[in-house]
Design a protein around this nucleic acid. Structure first.
Lengths: 344, 344
DNA sequence: CTGAAAGCGCTTACAG
DNA sequence: CTGAAAGCGCTTACAG
């Protein structure tokens, strides 16, 4: 039911080699004009497309790129969907397919996590890692094995793996600074999770801003919301129940910032009157919230594009101008922080 | 650098056939205990993983499923990201990989759209189509060719293609009805685009609700926002500039509904005081907007799961209990519609 | 139990 | 120009 080179060759009265040459437009000078036209006609008539699997087996190239996120459900978070979108747009233009894989392991220990399996099985030509959940050891091992690999918003100390980074320390430093300038001193840092390097870096930025203003660091003001709306709400509600005082929140993600605003409103606490809130990532719908959310803007689609361009260069064995590209978030002020002096 | 069956066979002192049997745990009764253990030890020691490409060439199975959206950028819309997430979670559990493909064609006419190419090249075992952009003719052709195929929120008249549908007519009927019950009679329908069947069905539901209440249909109240924030804002602003009167909006998507609210607020028009607004899809962050957005809720992740289960059954040549599964949206009332009687 | 051999659908050096 | 043949790394009937 499906044709092969053999069929095309037979119908065209040429050899399989000639069919291959015509299809790949390779060594075409070795093919007679007449034969070439004949083959092309047959291909067109039968609407023939080569079997990519067979080609891959010979060429060792699949034109598939794996993009790894923690759980495939993470694609719902605008952070990931924007980065993935940026990656996709570049890959597509270059004839590559995008495979979504997860980094969390299966329950059964012998099974490789999906993202490793994709590499080991030679399913893909390269890997873009968006997740912090992939273990350092595995990642370094891939890198050492020369697997084309790009890290996004993640680095591993002591290794110069090609990566697209976000200046997380600067990001939360700036966010915290902005809150301090509004007169706020009791600032909550709603992290995703401190087991992640990105949040440890953000925590450092937060601490740095505090210490520069001689504000003591209070560990109990650091919460973990796991980048989820419900988890962030719960964490903040717990803090509220403890009667812990605070008058600002810097969140590691807009979704968590919105969760905080919602939790505060529910308690009748005014934002930004009583508490200023600032998010991170500046996702599209943030201006729609009430109050509109201040946030640290990042060109997430651009970050994805950069990562895609890098992986393609690695695959093509081209030199990277820079092995590490860093983006710095930009403060976008809206209503949720309030204006300077609005504080008691 | 990478091992093959041949290497394993040599190191284990057995034949390639035996290696294959051990790896696939197939016909194991034909393999001596000793040899089996030897082979297993070598595989473990070398951390060997079979080349999936070679296997696919023989078995004609790739364990890849293509999920098609219009543009890969569409993954940013929560509607798609949730459906994709549902699909992903099922595929992953069943050992399948998910490939994201687009349905929009390339500029150059000879090129097949990516989603067709994936099928033609035998890159994937099946296709889940989330987009309306793929032409009916191509889709029907795939179906006739017995390509495992599932449509989501889309159908083609006269064809019984396996699909997961949304009762769009009922959805907009209910939304419009709710607005009418609030006393609103000049209701805007913000469609995505009427070239889409889903929006034509929604338009029908809208019209039906109007006519049941003896409200004349006014074509100039039907707008197209292309499911994008900016396009929807622009369309509504144009209507406002025309001084067209209306006191309610039913939108085909939450993002467009939020765009409308934002545009209205900018003009100092109160929601729901002056204009009631209701969205569609009930995406996660909708309760955070101000006013909180009423919407038509759909189990989008569940819809994705259903589609994934269907495609796997088709691939395994199992019977589908139902070739067509339909989900009906549920009205979730929040602030943006306002309470009954709140209308002048 | 065991494995040699054919074959999946391509690519490519090689000989003419 | 042209194509026979080997080979990519697997699976699987088939013979012993």
């Amino acid at each position: 039911m499906s044709y092969t080179y053999k069929d095309i060759a037979k119908k065209s009265g040429v050899s399989i080699t000639t069919v291959s040459r015509v299809i790949n437009k390779k060594d075409l000078h070795k093919v007679g004009k007449k034969k070439q036209e004949k083959v092309e006609a047959i291909i067109k008539r039968l609407d023939f497309t080569p079997n990519i699997i067979a080609r891959s087996l010979v060429s060792k190239k699949t034109f598939n790129i794996a993009v790894a996120i923690k759980d495939l459900e993470d694609i719902i978070n605008p952070y990931f969907s924007q980065v993935v979108s940026g990656i996709a747009s570049v890959l597509e233009r270059r004839g590559y397919y995008l495979q979504l894989v997860r980094t969390l392991s299966e329950k059964e220990p012998p099974l490789s996590p999906y993202y490793l399996k994709a590499i080991q099985e030679k399913r893909v030509d390269g890997l873009i890692l968006l997740s912090e959940e992939a273990g350092d050891r595995e990642v370094v091992e891939l890198y050492r094995k020369k697997v084309p690999l790009v890290l996004v918003n993640r680095y591993i100390d002591g290794e110069k793996i090609p990566s697209v980074l976000i200046d997380n320390e600067k990001g939360l430093y700036d966010a915290t600074k902005a809150l301090i300038e509004l007169g706020r001193k009791k600032i909550v840092f709603m992290a995703g999770a401190l087991k992640f390097q990105l949040d440890r870096d953000r925590l450092n930025g937060y601490k740095k801003a505090l210490s520069e203003s001689n504000i003591d660091f209070d560990e109990s003001l650091v919460l973990e919301g796991l980048f989820e709306f419900d988890k962030a709400s719960a964490a903040l509600e717990k803090l509220l129940a403890q009667k812990k005082e605070f008058n600002a929140i810097a969140a590691s993600d807009d979704v968590m910032a919105l969760a905080c605003i919602t939790a505060l409103k529910k308690k009748g606490i005014s934002v930004p009157g009583d508490v200023s809130v600032i998010g991170f990532n500046d996702m599209m719908l943030v201006p729609v919230s009430s109050p509109t959310l201040s946030s640290m803007r990042l060109p997430l689609v651009g970050i994805g594009k950069e990562a895609a361009n890098m992986i393609l260069k690695l695959i093509d064995k081209e030199k990277l101008e820079k092995a590490v590209v860093t983006f710095t978030p930009e403060l976008i002020k809206r209503e949720s922080t309030g204006s300077s002096g609005a504080v008691g």
